[in-house]
């Protein structure tokens, strides 16, 4: 073989060996730019005096101080807390209950499961639109109750600043609880039959078997559904926009709608960036420990 041909072959081999890296690197670069680069930019902007236009002069924590002094941000955080707590608690309770009930040899289980889960296929905008109509203070549930004879029934949560956030909870739970049911049902189905048989021989009835044997085994499912729901809750934007538009006033604002409004409607870039960074920090606080333990578990 000639010297040149040998060198050609060596070069081709090297290329073959590097090919996987060559394929991955543009994608990785894109992710570095669009995720990490953008996060860095947003974080930087949050430390500047940027208003309508970005300014690149650092200004310390001024935007954060402004943010935390804004009553609307405080409302948004309060709402997030209420929403997160109720949304996670109700979705988990309903999801676990339905999963256990569906696990009792129901012949039409497939059909029921389909019904419980279909809201997950809808856009939050559709869900919001539907519930906005159902909860309509004049023509919605209130009218329905009146026609059923409850003349004094009043239901104005949608336009009541104190109660409006709970309508977001109602719609959110309607959409997402089926998902939790599906996660738990899959979890229940993966429990070794023999463990349930062993519990039967040990004298545990169905209730005790679930409470004392099966649900403790479901700990990872509780954890991952908590993560998913918390993630959904912190990011929730569409549902609020479609259902209440953040109103009445800004009574149902959440960090996500706050950020959008400051960024695109009021053009206060610095404050918007600071609120986005706060959201990121919240999600990191929930997810990093989880991801860390997951990846460590996977490496074992």
């Amino acid at each position: 073989m000639s010297q040149a041909a040998k060198r050609g072959l060596a070069a081709r081999r090297l290329f073959e060996r590097l090919l996987p890296r060559i394929v991955v690197s543009p994608l990785f670069a894109a992710s570095l730019f669009f995720v990490y680069g953008f996060i860095a930019w947003t974080v930087y902007i949050s430390f500047t005096r940027s208003g309508v236009l970005p300014s690149y002069t650092l200004d310390g924590l001024s935007q954060y101080i402004r943010l935390w002094a804004t009553p609307r941000w405080q409302v948004a955080l309060g709402n997030l807390f209420i929403f997160c707590t109720l949304f996670i608690a109700l979705c988990t309770a309903i999801g676990v209950l339905l999963a256990i009930l569906l696990d009792q040899r129901i012949r039409i289980e497939g059909a029921i499961r389909t019904v419980y889960l279909y809201p997950m296929a809808l856009s939050f905008i559709v869900t919001g639109t539907a519930w906005k109509w159902i909860l309509n203070p004049g023509l919605g549930i209130e009218r329905l109750m009146h026609s059923m004879g409850f003349a004094g029934f009043r239901f104005d949560w949608l336009v009541n600043p104190k109660m409006a956030i709970y309508t977001v909870v109602i719609a959110g739970v309607w959409q997402s609880s089926g998902y939790v049911m599906a996660l738990f049902l899959a979890g229940l189905r993966s429990v070794d039959d023999e463990i349930i048989k062993a519990a039967a021989i040990d004298g545990a009835g169905p209730l005790r078997t679930y409470a004392s044997v099966v649900l403790p085994i479901m700990r990872p499912v509780f954890l991952s559904s908590f993560i998913i729901l918390a993630h959904l809750a912190i990011k929730s934007f569409d549902l609020v926009v479609a259902l209440t538009g953040g109103g009445p006033g800004y009574a149902t604002d959440m960090p996500a709608t706050f950020m959008y409004s400051f960024a695109f409607q009021r053009s206060e870039l610095g404050t918007a960036a600071a609120s986005a960074v706060m959201m990121l920090a919240t999600i990191l606080a929930v997810i990093v420990p989880y991801l860390y333990s997951e990846l460590r578990g996977a490496n074992k």
Binding site: E194, K197, A198, A199, P216, I217
Partner: peptide, 9 residues
């Protein structure tokens, strides 16, 4: 049982 079926928790 074959899998021992011990309660893992």
């Amino acid at each position: 049982f074959q899998s021992y079926a011990l309660y893992p928790t």
